[in-house]
Write a protein that binds this DNA or RNA. Structure first.
Lengths: 153, 153
DNA sequence: ATATTTGCAAACTGTTTGCATGTGT
DNA sequence: ACACATGCAAACAGTTTGCAAATAT
């Protein structure tokens, strides 16, 4: 969320993005900054093609290859999380460890505390003799907002 | 597991495989039966290419296309579970709902009880206002056998 | 006989790589 | 100048589809 705020629409966002990229060992080129900013504009994971389309739509000249390379670089330093699926999707996240709760209805990703998740899965150790890797286990379900919507609508 | 037993090496396996395929609305051709039997021989999810290679290795004439089509058909009736990743992998499973616990060390998949899993994730409802879809949330970690091995070796 | 299943080749999708060009410092 | 970043085109891997030949009922 720190990363997301860094790119928020407020005027100072841009300079923080530059700082984050620098800290990640990446020179803050226009392409990298805008890829980052597009990600920051979404609550849900987006595909490389989506990022590319958005940027081309804005008139920026950027290759799909560069989008992929930037995404990889950001993932490597822990600034984005990669969601496996038919098509890979990417989303900014905290550099600190956390669980991902993914809403199947609206795509929203909640970053939950690792401690809480560890507690959830503690019983699995005895019940199934299995120790869960919290950071690798994305959890799918429905977020509160969508539940409310489903009940109402 | 019922499905796995049906294809076990005991002599009577074959007839049960035929029954399962029939029940699934698939005519039990040689290709389909052998795809099923290959799956039954693994504790871990295997890729379409792996299944294909094994069967070709046995001398059976079968196209990769047929492997894919059979895998899809079995998945559709709930006899196999598809694991997302760089490459998709397939594994026989119970037709009844369950959670999948996937060992990242050895690939073993444990089919856990939905009730237990629901209990694990009950706290998530209050803590994060999120209701988990147990069947869609594959859990990654380390199985007891591998934990023991890691401690020992 | 008729509908279904199969294999091959070709298409397709998402992703990665080689390399020459361009850019920043 | 120099290392690094970029774009394009081509390669690539996994998967899907069109279609004619083979098979099952």
């Amino acid at each position: 969320v720190a990363a997301r705020e860094a790119a928020s629409t407020s005027g100072t966002g841009a300079v923080e993005v530059v700082g984050l990229l620098r800290a990640a060992g990446l020179s803050p080129t226009a392409q990298r900054r805008t890829v980052f900013e597009v990600l920051a504009g979404y609550e849900r994971p987006v595909s490389a093609a989506e990022v590319h389309d958005v940027l081309r739509g804005r008139g920026l000249r950027i290759g799909l290859t560069t989008v992929y390379r930037t995404l990889h670089a950001l993932a490597e330093v822990g600034l984005v999380h990669v969601f496996a699926g038919e098509e890979r999707r990417y989303r900014l996240c905290l550099p600190a460890p956390h669980v991902h709760l993914v809403c199947e209805a609206c795509g929203l990703v909640i970053e939950g505390s690792v401690d809480a998740a560890r507690r959830w899965w503690e019983p699995a150790r005895k019940e199934a003799d299995f120790v869960v890797n919290v950071e690798h286990s994305d959890v799918y379900g429905t977020c509160g907002r969508c539940l409310a919507g489903l009940r109402a609508g």
